[in-house]
Design a binder for these strands. Sequence first.
DNA 1: ATTTTTATAGATTTATTTTCTAATTATTTT
DNA 2: AAAATAATTAGAAAATAAATCTATAAAAAT
Lengths: 150, 150
Amino acid sequence: MDATDKKLLELLQSDTKKTTAALAVKLNLSVTAVYERIKKLEREGIIDKYVALLNRNKINKGFVVFCHLKLLQHTKEFINQFEKEVIKLNEVLECFHVSGDYDYILKVCVKDMEEYREFMVTKLTTLQHIGSTHSTFMIGEVKNTTAFTV
Amino acid sequence: MDATDKKLLELLQSDTKKTTAALAVKLNLSVTAVYERIKKLEREGIIDKYVALLNRNKINKGFVVFCHLKLLQHTKEFINQFEKEVIKLNEVLECFHVSGDYDYILKVCVKDMEEYREFMVTKLTTLQHIGSTHSTFMIGEVKNTTAFTV
DNA sequence: ATTTTTATAGATTTATTTTCTAATTATTTT
DNA sequence: AAAATAATTAGAAAATAAATCTATAAAAAT
C-alpha cells in the first residue's frame, strides 16, 4: 500500500462513479494500472463494498437517536440472544458493544419523536434481557463521513 | 416513490456495481426503466452519493471510540469555533451535536489505544472551548450498516 | 373525451470496463 | 553484481455496460 493506493482509496471513498480513465489522470497512471490496483485492493479486502448513500432527510429518517442500553445480565446466552434480535430491527443502523456504564450504543434512525416512541415501546423494550436504556437525541450533524484518511 | 423504487434503493444501498441490466431482471423492468428511475432518485437528492466502503481493520482503524464532550460555554461563537475545528480532524469520522449531559458525540477511529491517547493529547484537547470529555470504547460490532430500510 | 405528462420498451450509439500482449520496473535468488 | 523471477505498467483490442433516441403505453390533468 503506497501513496498512490492511498490517494486511490481516498478518491473511491468519495465517489465510485468516476471512470477508471478519470482516476488514471488524477493519479498519473494508465487505465490498466489503476484497474489492477483497484482489483488488488478488492482482493485484499481493503475495499469492502460499493454502496449508494441516501439522504436521511428525504426518506423520513432524519430523527437520529443514540440509544444506550444495559442488559440485565452479562451471560453469553443473554448477549447472544440480544444481539441476534437487535440486528433484525430496521430502525437500528448501528449497534456497538461498548465499555462503560452501558453495554451497547445503538444508532436509531426514524422519522420523528412519535416514531421513536413507537420503536421503543413496540420493538426495543420487547427484546429479552434488557435492563435500562438512555436516549440521547441528535440536534445537529457536524460531520458524518464513511471515508477514512488512510 | 413506489415499491419498485424502494426495492431499487435497497439494491443500490447494498451494491452499486450491479449493472442496470441485472437490476432490471430483479425488478422485472426494462433497462431503460431502471436507468430512468435511478436518474430520478439522483436528481431528487434521495441518492446522495456512491462510495466505496473500506474494511476498518485492514487499514489500522479498528480501534473505535465514542467520545462524548462538553463545551465550556454554549455561545454561538464557541460552538462555531469548535465545529469548524473538529471537522478537520481525520480521526473523527462522525460528530453529532446532541441533547443530554454532553454536547457532542464523536466517533473516533484509530489504530489502537496508544494512537487514541496521542489523538486526545495532541489534537482533541488542544481544541478551544472544550470542557470535559468522556470516552466509551467499542469492544464489539454487532451491526454497522449504511443502508436504510426505506 | 382530449390533451399533456410520465413511464416504459427496444434499438442504436457512445463510453467504459475487461482482457490480452508486451515491455518495464522492482525484487529475489544465485 | 548478474541473472532469474515476479510484479507493475502501458497500449491496443475485445467485451460489456451506460446513455441516448424513437416509439409506444399508461396515467394525470384539462
